[in-house]
């Protein structure tokens, strides 16, 4: 089996390295991350991020055979005899599979991802802000985002305007607060998206939804946000 990895170090020109992997070392149910760790034991210079190894921290987003995903929850056996790994597209590469997610985080920060409850109620720690199960259910599908970047990295609108278009992850985060019954800044959050270079750059090609390793649907969230914004 062959594993091809797009290698990059600023001191040399980029190249694709081919690792021949003996299939006897692959265990049943082995994840791609384990394979990468194995490769790094032989070649310590191989660069990739990882942390939780179970798909909840979002460290190890990468492009796997042309599709973005998390290496720790991608089965090696599903990837065929030739696995080609590339860094997440649309971001500056720092080293090998490590990209600079700075712009991605900045968009997240820019949407003010913080619950803004009624200040008088929020100051009272003697009681909870009540929320019915139905109101809470509206948050399902948006609060679970792990900020891995797989969605934004697969979005042409984000590739074109990485500095202006918030990208699916940040817009999903907006939706998380817009639908939260405890939040009082719904209007401001929507108004902040009302420019030609923000949410309306999304053309709903749904690459984001196809890429999301957590099975979330940013495209639908963006559609819902547009609808809210238009019916304001």
């Amino acid at each position: 089996m062959q594993v091809l990895i797009d290698r990059y170090h600023p001191d040399t020109s980029p190249y694709t390295q081919c690792y021949d992997v003996d299939e006897s070392m692959l265990s049943e149910g082995m994840m791609l991350l384990q394979l990468l760790q194995h490769l790094r034991e032989q070649d310590p210079s191989l660069g990739f991020r990882s942390s939780c190894q179970e798909g909840v921290c979002g460290s190890d987003g990468m492009n796997i055979n042309g599709k973005n995903g998390l290496s720790c929850i991608t089965l090696v056996r599903d990837l065929g005899q030739r696995i080609h790994l590339r860094p997440l597209p649309g971001f500056a590469v720092i080293k090998d599979l490590i990209v600079d997610l700075g712009p991605f985080y900045q968009h997240y920060q820019a949407i003010k991802p913080r619950l803004a409850p009624e200040p008088s109620v929020a100051a009272d720690l003697g009681q909870e802000l009540l929320q019915t199960p139905e109101e809470r259910a509206k948050l399902d599908g948006s609060y679970e985002c792990i900020l891995c970047g797989c969605c934004s990295s697969s979005c042409p609108s984000f590739w074109w305007n990485p500095d202006l278009f918030p990208g699916p992850a940040a817009l999903l985060a907006v939706q998380r607060f817009v639908v939260d019954s405890r939040d009082i800044q719904r209007k401001e959050r929507l108004e902040a998206l009302n420019s030609a270079t923000s949410i309306f750059r999304c053309r709903h090609i749904q690459n984001c939804t196809a890429a999301c390793p957590k099975g979330l649907n940013p495209s639908r969230a963006i559609q819902a946000l547009k609808h809210e914004l238009l019916s304001q």
């Binding site: 009302n194 030609a196 923000s198 238009l230």
Partner: peptide, 8 residues
């Protein structure tokens, strides 16, 4: 340039 109005 605005977004919602143009979209509408």
């Amino acid at each position: 340039l605005r977004g919602a109005a143009a979209h509408r």
